[in-house]
């Protein structure tokens, strides 16, 4: 049974925390990070990063494992203090006005950190009470969200009987129970079944449409490419690049590629043979196709046709591709394709 889609309310400058109400909320950036540094002993996990996220923006935060993504999120959510620098959430300093800053955010961590000994409903109620949402509002919000995530029928079941995808959906529902203006989403769809993936991606799209600021951390670069207004690529604690996905792709126009498939499929030696063609910088096999990286696609197309003729085969499809966000990521982080690329997807 599919529940009718919930329209996420457009939430701007709304704070229930009268103690810290700031009259200039409307003009605030959702996140402002200035010269943030975080060290663990001799390791500098976050090294002087500065960026901002506008209200209503969907911001992707990408990086290889150990790049500093989680540390940055822990600082921005007030769990971990920085050694130096400043971070504000809608104008509230996360270190000095932690409670006020957190009141406007929802946090969905990478792990589905739900209480498996409680029911789905009890989990929602607990999450809402931590934000001091009144009984009628929290029950209304919880019902809406559980229906939205197709968990309502199982609301009275203990969570330890839920599938991985259901736990993930419940985690996200709990992160939305306070109708946050800013949502931290850490790997929302990693390793999920197709149904959960579709539900969660639709939810993210609805949030974006509803004006919620989304801070998205993901290993799925294509997901970031589709969803994000801007992405930052962090590597070894330093922001390597920060821009709109299309702008980032423009910076490496030299990394264009040709995707080609041959009638007789692949052969063990074909990859090396294609890699040896003139103007081909690199090549990799992708399923029944080959992807050839080049700075001059037209010359490579000619070379591929000549290769097909010489090897008595036919090209059944050939496509010219611009650089992908993954290409940008690989270029900036220095990851090696093949073994290295598995770390980001």
């Amino acid at each position: 049974m599919h529940a009718p889609p919930v329209v996420f309310r457009k939430v701007r400058a709304r704070s229930s925390n009268s103690c810290f109400k700031n009259p200039h909320d409307d003009d605030m950036q959702a996140i402002e990070v200035s010269h943030l540094i975080k060290r663990f002993g001799t390791l500098t996990a976050v090294n002087d990063i500065t960026f901002s996220v506008a209200a209503g923006e969907t911001f992707g935060f990408l990086g290889p494992n150990g790049a500093g993504k989680t540390t940055t999120i822990r600082i921005l959510t007030g769990i971990s203090p920085p050694n130096s620098g400043q971070a504000t959430i809608f104008g509230h300093d996360i270190m000095r006005e932690t409670v006020a800053a957190r009141q406007s955010m929802g946090i969905v961590s990478e792990t589905s950190n739900v209480y498996t000994d409680l029911t789905g409903w009890q989990n929602m109620m607990l999450a809402a009470q931590l934000y001091r949402i009144g009984r009628s509002e929290r029950e209304k919000n919880a019902s809406e969200l559980l229906k939205r995530f197709e968990l309502y029928e199982r609301r009275n079941d203990k969570v330890h009987g839920f599938s991985k995808g259901m736990k993930r959906r419940l985690t996200i529902a709990m992160g939305l129970v306070n109708s946050p203006r800013l949502l931290f989403l850490d790997e929302p769809t990693s390793g999920l079944d197709v149904e959960s993936n579709l539900i969660i991606r639709q939810m993210i799209s609805d949030l974006i449409t509803g004006g919620v600021t989304v801070f998205l951390t993901t290993h799925n670069i294509e997901e970031a490419n589709i969803l994000c207004d801007r992405v930052a690529i962090i590597d070894k604690g330093v922001i390597a690049a920060i821009d709109a996905p299309e702008q980032l792709k423009k910076t490496i126009q030299s990394v264009q590629s040709i995707e080609v498939a041959f009638l007789d499929g692949t052969s063990p030696t074909r990859l090396d043979e294609l890699r040896a063609l003139p103007m081909v910088n690199d090549a990799r096999k992708e399923g029944d196709k080959f992807k050839l990286f080049t700075e001059d696609p037209s010359q490579v197309i000619d070379a591929v046709m000549a290769y097909a003729h010489d090897h008595h085969t036919r090209v059944i499809s050939i496509t010219t591709l611009g650089p992908s966000l993954e290409d940008v990521f690989v270029r900036l982080t220095g990851l090696q394709r093949g073994g290295g690329i598995s770390a980001i997807d």
Partner: peptide, 25 residues
């Protein structure tokens, strides 16, 4: 940000509600 008496009461009430929610859990 300004901190009023009502704000402090609100904050205290918020803390107690959350503390009780944690205890119930």
């Amino acid at each position: 940000p300004s901190i009023s008496l009502a704000g402090i009461e609100d904050r205290l009430s918020r803390e107690l509600v959350a503390a009780w929610a944690i205890a119930k859990k």
